[in-house]
Amino acid sequence: MPEMNLVQAINDALRVEMRADPDVVVLGEDVGKVGGVFRVTQGLYDEFGEDRVIDTPLAEGGIIGTAVGMALYGMRPVPEIQFADFIFPAYDQIVSEVAKYRYRSGGEYTCPMVIRTPVGGGIRGGHYHSQSPESLFIHNAGLTVVCPSNPYDAKGLLISAIRSDDPILFFEPKRVYRAVKMDVPEGDYTLPLGKAKVVKEGNDVTVIAWGAMLFEALASAEEVAAEGVSAEVIDLRTLWPVDIDTIVESVKKTGRVVIVHEAPKTCGFGGELLSLVVEKAFLHLEAPPVRVTGWDTPFPYTLEMEYLPLQHRITPALLETARYVP
């Protein structure tokens, strides 16, 4: 089985689907000849030509708007937004159109597309190359939001996403792009959307994370193990609709939960997860649920490592939550 990093695995998923289905097209800024600024679409232009791997003009609203048209006609566009920070010129198309087409047309029109975009910080990108805007999309009914943490999951989830009849935002943690390598099967395989994964079992406290922060949560889980605390780590993989059963089952077992995300705390997805935990497992809770998140400031440049909810902040939160006595 070949080893792939996240970039290669996503590239491979695109290739597999483009070979299988001539309706799959990729479009975006710099995605063609050069294969994207992160090289995620590298080689696709040579294999599939400029009609299926389209270097568009510099306009995100145009990228998503034309992708909507393609999808309505029955194609399977996979638009790329170069950085999630630049998705906002397309926000109107995504929240007013993409998210609403099925509903507003009484199911007559559908808008199947996968909007791929890199998210997250820790790469010296300042606030315009580092943000994690998931909650802005989760909040809009009609969007499926996926964020894989590793190459194997990314490939299987992306293939499922492209085959899905619903529009999907596919957030790629750019800090992981070349940082993690693992065995990834060749050819076609899918992973179910909407399913989280317990990546480490434990009994004392549940940690919920996704994307690049998953690795920080795992590192903390290992660190607290040395202090006798057994943490269960959940990788959400699909953020919305979230796999509530896996979360509730884990919290019922541990009675304690820590949620980690890079986005600011206020109205971050952690707030929603926390509410769900309280609604569905209140009587099982043995400690107040805790969020370890980015601060409520724009994403900074020089101090980004102090902004991010990394291991150094997750570990004490795990210890405190696990040892909490009412």
Partner: peptide, 20 residues
Amino acid sequence: WHLKEQREQLLGGPRAKDHH
């Protein structure tokens, strides 16, 4: 208030290891 609170948390909390 919420930023005052978060500033206290940052200043009183652990430092990140990996500074650029």
